Lab assay of single mutants.
Amino acid sequence: DDWEIHFNNITIRLHGVSEEQIEELKELIKNGAHEEELRKWAEEVNR
């Protein structure tokens, strides 16, 4: 699925990401992940 997530003036566009991966991302954000951590997560997902 395609997703677009907005938070802290950042837009993250995701393509072909599962519901499970979105839940992981929500947890990262909820736990106060920094932009660098989110980038690493996105790189892993996009492999």
Rank of each mutant, 00 (worst) to 15 (best):
L25T: 00
E24R: 09
H6D: 05
N9F: 07
I22Y: 08
V17K: 03
E36W: 02
E23H: 12
I12T: 04
F7V: 12
W41D: 02
E36N: 13
E43T: 02
G32E: 03
A42W: 14
L14V: 13
H15S: 10
W3D: 03
K26R: 13
G16A: 07
I5T: 04
K30T: 06
L14E: 01
E27V: 10
I22P: 00
V45G: 01
E27L: 12
N31I: 05
T11P: 00
L25A: 03
I10G: 06
V17T: 03
V45D: 02
G16N: 15
Q21K: 13
R13P: 02
V17W: 13
N8W: 01
E4V: 12
H34I: 10
H6M: 10
I29P: 00
S18V: 04
V17D: 00
E44R: 07
D1C: 15
I10V: 10
H6Q: 11
L28V: 02
W3K: 03
R13S: 11
E36C: 08
Q21Y: 10
E24K: 09
E35G: 07
R13C: 13
G16T: 10
E4P: 00
S18G: 07
K40M: 04
G16M: 05
S18T: 12
H6V: 12
Q21N: 06
L14F: 02
N31R: 12
D2H: 15
E37Y: 07
E44C: 06
G16F: 12
L38F: 03
L14W: 00
E43M: 01
L38E: 00
D2R: 09
L14I: 10
W3V: 11
L38N: 00
K26A: 09
G32R: 03
K30L: 09
H15F: 08
N46C: 14
I29L: 08
D1A: 14
W41A: 11
E44S: 09
N46Q: 15
E27N: 13
W3F: 14
N9L: 06
D1W: 15
R13D: 10
E24S: 10
N9M: 11
E36D: 15
I5C: 12
H34N: 15
E20R: 11
H15I: 12
I29V: 07
T11V: 11
K40N: 10
D2F: 13
I5D: 02
R13T: 04
R39S: 05
G16V: 07
E24G: 07
E27A: 13
S18H: 05
L38V: 07
D2E: 15
D2S: 13
H6C: 10
I12V: 06
H34P: 12
L25W: 03
Q21W: 07
D1F: 15
E23I: 11
S18W: 04
E27M: 13
K26G: 05
I29Q: 01
D2G: 13
A42C: 10
D2N: 13
H15A: 08
E37M: 09
H34M: 11
L28K: 06
E37A: 14
E37C: 07
E27W: 08
K40T: 02
H15M: 06
K26P: 00
W41R: 08
F7W: 09
L25C: 02
E19M: 13
K40Q: 12
K40I: 06
E23M: 13
T11I: 13
Q21V: 13
A42Q: 07
I29D: 00
I5Y: 08
L38R: 00
E19P: 11
V45R: 03
N31A: 14
V45W: 13
Q21A: 11
T11R: 04
G32D: 03
F7G: 01
L38W: 01
I10L: 09
E35N: 05
E35T: 06
R47G: 15
L28Q: 01
L28D: 00
S18E: 02
L25S: 00
E19H: 12
S18I: 04
E4G: 02
E19F: 14
N46F: 11
D2T: 13
E19Q: 14
A33T: 06
R39D: 09
W41Q: 04
R47M: 15
H34V: 11
E24I: 11
S18P: 05
E23A: 12
K26V: 14
N9K: 07
A33N: 03
I29E: 01
N46T: 12
D1L: 15
N31L: 07
T11Y: 04
I10S: 06
E43W: 01
T11L: 13
A42K: 02
L28P: 00
I29R: 01
H15K: 10
D1E: 15
I10C: 12
L25I: 09
N31D: 06
R13A: 06
F7E: 01
D1M: 15
K30D: 04
I5L: 10
E19G: 10
L14D: 01
W3Q: 05
A42D: 09
G16K: 15
H6Y: 04
R39G: 06
L25N: 00
D2A: 10
I10E: 08
E43S: 02
L28H: 01
E20W: 10
V45M: 12
H15L: 09
I29Y: 03
A33K: 03
I10P: 01
N31V: 05
E20H: 12
I22T: 04
L25Q: 00
K30E: 08
I22F: 09
V45T: 05
I5N: 02
K26N: 08
E44D: 08
T11H: 08
E43H: 01
E24D: 06
R13F: 05
V45Y: 11
D2Y: 15
E36G: 07
L38S: 00
G16R: 11
I12Y: 00
D1R: 15
E23P: 01
K30Q: 09
L38G: 00
H6N: 08
I29F: 06
L28I: 05
Q21R: 11
F7S: 02
A42Y: 14
N9S: 11
W41K: 13
G32K: 03
E35Q: 04
A33V: 12
H34S: 15
E20K: 12
L14S: 03
D1K: 15
W3N: 03
W3R: 04
R39N: 11
E20Q: 15
N31F: 04
E37S: 08
E37L: 09
F7Q: 01
G16D: 11
A33L: 10
F7H: 05
E44N: 14
E4D: 10
R47D: 13
W3M: 09
N9Y: 04
L28W: 02
G32I: 01
A42N: 02
E43D: 13
E27C: 10
A33Q: 01
K30P: 00
K40V: 02
N46M: 15
I12P: 03
N8C: 12
N46V: 12
W41H: 06
I29S: 01
N46Y: 05
N8D: 09
F7T: 03
